[in-house]
């Protein structure tokens, strides 16, 4: 095998250190902060709230709207604050991922608005965003079929790796973000950029699912500790 070593010394299937926190913004109905190494993301959820113009609201279910945005100083060279084509596409795939996990028919004629700001980008920003939004939706008390956990996997120098950093992403032969509902074993987001054989794809999928299960546990732990602090606040421990 090649002499490839990851720049931060991680094993190929090792995640970067994760930090997650819920209810970080007081104005939003739900919010969360999620950190994977140097990738730092904050997400806010508003709703379910009334949709305007009213005649375009869906009579049977609520709408989900997502805006994924990178702040200008989140990347090495300043990025224009306007939405790029990349950001529009990512907003769309995140919206569709959550469209499959929110029980939308509970809130007809309404909208659930999700806003994501990438504070610092170092690869895997869309999956960190999904992990953050998942917690923010729980914080907002919105009915979900399951939490959504996401991770990116990829191939670099013929090795299969998990949780790509920005540099690894730039030099990779393939990268593949995956988001799923781990308990239901359903995939909500899948993209792949680069080239893979079918065998490599299957192996990456397996590695991705294992990593997703780890993130799922961290999310559940975050929800538990957030709930405990709320109970403490009301003196019911």
């Amino acid at each position: 095998m090649s002499q490839f070593k990851r720049s931060d010394g991680r094993a190929n299937d090792e995640l970067r250190p994760i930090k997650a926190e819920m209810h970080v913004l007081k104005n939003a109905d739900g919010s969360a902060y999620f950190e994977m190494g140097n990738t730092k993301v904050i997400a806010a959820v508003y709703g379910p709230r009334e949709y305007y113009p009213k005649q375009l609201a869906l009579p049977q279910e609520s709408m989900v709207r997502v805006r994924y945005h990178m702040i200008p100083f989140s990347v090495k060279e300043r990025k224009s604050p306007a939405l790029t084509r990349r950001e529009i596409e990512i907003s769309k795939v995140i919206k569709e991922a959550f469209g499959g996990c929110i029980k939308k028919d509970l809130f007809p004629r309404s909208t659930i608005d999700v806003y994501i700001e990438v504070l610092n980008a170092d690869g895997s920003t869309r999956v960190a965003s999904i992990n953050a939004v998942s917690l923010a939706l729980v914080d907002a008390g919105i009915f979900l079929y399951d939490l959504v956990a996401a991770v990116s996997v990829g191939k670099i120098h013929d090795q299969l790796i998990v949780d790509l950093t920005g540099d690894e992403d730039q030099n990779s032969e393939a990268d593949m973000p995956i988001a799923m509902m781990p308990s239901l074993n359903k995939i909500l987001l899948l993209q792949m950029d680069g080239t893979l054989t079918v065998e490599e794809f299957n192996n990456l999928m397996k590695m991705g699912i294992q990593a997703i299960k780890k993130i799922y546990e961290i999310q559940k732990e975050t929800i538990r500790s957030s709930l405990e602090s709320v109970l403490k606040m009301y003196g019911q421990t």
Binding site: I187, L190, G194, V198
Partner: peptide, 22 residues
């Protein structure tokens, strides 16, 4: 791509897929 390589994947639309589907 070229008969045996996967050159890209995109899932769109708000449903869920199983691994068998893929």
């Amino acid at each position: 791509s070229n008969g045996n390589l996967i050159g890209g994947i995109q899932k769109s639309g708000s449903g869920a897929l199983s691994i068998e589907d893929i």
